[in-house]
Amino acid sequence: NDEAKKEAEKLWKNNKSEDEIKERLERAGISPDEAEQWLQELR
């Protein structure tokens, strides 16, 4: 999970869309709710 979150953070810094980041997190096995929460922390 931490690995996926690091990846999400990297994508965020590269200005990827939130949808793309969420999709990537969900593919890594993170629930949509958790993915949404993680994005809010990044904002």
Rank of each mutant, 00 (worst) to 15 (best):
K13N: 07
I21R: 00
E18L: 11
I30D: 02
W12A: 01
Q40L: 12
A8Y: 03
W38M: 07
E18S: 07
Q37V: 08
E41W: 15
L11D: 05
A28L: 15
S31H: 09
N14C: 15
D2P: 08
L39H: 00
R24F: 15
K13F: 10
D19L: 11
N14A: 14
K5C: 14
K16D: 04
L39Q: 01
E3D: 11
E20G: 03
N15Q: 06
W12S: 01
S31V: 02
E36W: 10
E9V: 11
Q40H: 11
D19V: 10
K5A: 02
R27W: 11
L42H: 04
S31L: 07
W12P: 00
A28Y: 15
K6E: 06
R24W: 15
E26M: 15
Q37S: 09
L25R: 00
L11Y: 06
K6Q: 08
E41G: 07
Q37L: 12
S17T: 09
E34Y: 04
A28C: 14
D19S: 12
E3P: 05
K10L: 13
D2L: 13
I21N: 00
A4V: 09
K13V: 05
P32G: 07
L39V: 06
S31D: 09
Q40D: 07
E3H: 10
E20L: 06
E18Y: 12
I21F: 04
E34N: 04
A8W: 04
L25F: 02
D33M: 11
E9R: 14
K10T: 10
R24C: 15
A35N: 01
N15C: 15
A35T: 06
E41Y: 14
K22V: 04
K5Q: 03
D33S: 10
A35M: 09
A8Q: 01
A8P: 01
N1I: 14
E41L: 13
W38G: 00
D2Q: 12
R27A: 13
L11K: 02
L25P: 00
Q37M: 11
N1D: 09
K22T: 02
E41D: 08
Q37D: 05
I30P: 00
K5F: 14
N14P: 03
L42S: 02
E9N: 05
E3K: 10
S17L: 05
I21E: 02
K5D: 02
D19N: 08
E3C: 15
P32M: 07
P32I: 06
A8K: 01
N15A: 07
K22Q: 03
W38A: 01
L11W: 12
W38T: 02
D33E: 13
S31N: 08
K6F: 06
I30E: 02
K13H: 08
R27N: 09
E20H: 03
E36Q: 08
E36F: 07
D19I: 10
W38S: 01
A4I: 12
A28N: 05
E36L: 10
I21C: 04
K5T: 03
K10A: 09
S17G: 05
E36G: 03
N14K: 08
Q40M: 13
E18W: 14
K6R: 12
P32L: 08
D33Q: 12
L25C: 03
E20A: 05
I21S: 00
L11P: 01
N1W: 15
N15K: 09
K16S: 09
E36R: 06
K13L: 09
R24I: 15
E7F: 12
E41M: 13
A35H: 03
E7M: 15
N1P: 13
K6L: 09
E23Y: 08
E41V: 12
E3T: 10
E18V: 12
R24E: 10
E26F: 15
E34K: 09
N15D: 06
L11E: 03
A35S: 04
R24S: 13
A4M: 14
E7D: 07
L25Y: 00
Q40W: 14
D19M: 10
R27K: 11
R43A: 04
I21L: 03
W38N: 00
I30N: 01
K22H: 02
L39M: 08
R43Y: 05
E26L: 15
K22A: 01
N1G: 11
S17M: 04
P32E: 07
D19R: 12
N15G: 15
Q40G: 05
R43N: 03
E36N: 08
E41I: 11
N1Q: 13
W12L: 04
K16M: 14
R24T: 12
E41H: 13
E7I: 12
N1S: 12
D2F: 13
E41F: 14
A4S: 05
I30G: 01
K22E: 03
A4P: 04
A4N: 04
S17H: 04
L25H: 00
P32T: 08
A28R: 10
S31T: 10
K13A: 10
L42G: 00
S17W: 04
A8R: 03
E36V: 05
E26V: 14
R24Y: 15
S31A: 08
Q40T: 09
I30F: 11
A4G: 05
R43V: 05
E41K: 13
L25T: 01
N1T: 13
R27G: 06
E36P: 01
K5H: 05
A4H: 07
E3W: 15
L42R: 08
L39K: 00
N14D: 13
W38C: 00
L42E: 01
R24A: 15
E41N: 11
E36D: 08
D33N: 08
L11S: 04
E20W: 07
K6I: 08
A4K: 06
D33P: 04
K10W: 14
A4D: 03
A35E: 00
K6W: 08
E23S: 10
L25V: 02
A28E: 08
N14M: 14
L11H: 04
K6N: 06
D2I: 13
Q37W: 06
K16Q: 06
L39T: 02
W38F: 12
E23N: 07
E26A: 14
R43P: 01
K6Y: 07
A8G: 04
K16I: 14
A28P: 02
N1F: 14
E36M: 09
K13G: 05
D19G: 07
N15I: 03
